[in-house]
Amino acid sequence: MSRDSRISADDVRHVARLARLALPESRIEAMAADLRAIVAHIDKLSSADVDGLEPMAHPSATVNRLADDVPEPSMPVEDLLRNAPDVEGDFLAVPKVIGGDSA
């Protein structure tokens, strides 16, 4: 996506696909216009003078929020399954995915 706020219809289709959103063709132009407005707004940040400043990884100055490696109980499997649209035994069931795990 270009930084100069010119978001094309194809950019919108691409982002919608990555987000797995079924965006009707009739809404693409309106969405592109909205996104252009949002990006233009955010782009105001580009006018800030950041010369000589280190990039920040996080707005907070806090670092090293670490927990000790001590396991705690899991949630009951029934509670997990209750949130799923479809289950099979103790598994969450989804439409067939080809190609194995994403890891």
């Binding site: 929020r65 670490l66 927990a67 000790d68 490696d69 705690e72 899991s74 949630m75 499997v77 997990l80 399954l81 949130n83 035994g89 103790d90 598994f91 969450l92």
Partner: peptide
């Protein structure tokens, strides 16, 4: 472990959960 028994609200990505890193893993 039986399937889906090593799961808590963060693993299941339930809303409102926040990650805290494991010192030992680091």
């Amino acid at each position: 472990a039986a399937p889906n028994t090593l799961v808590d609200p963060l693993v299941a990505a339930l809303p409102g959960t926040l990650p805290v890193m494991n010192r030992r893993a680091v």
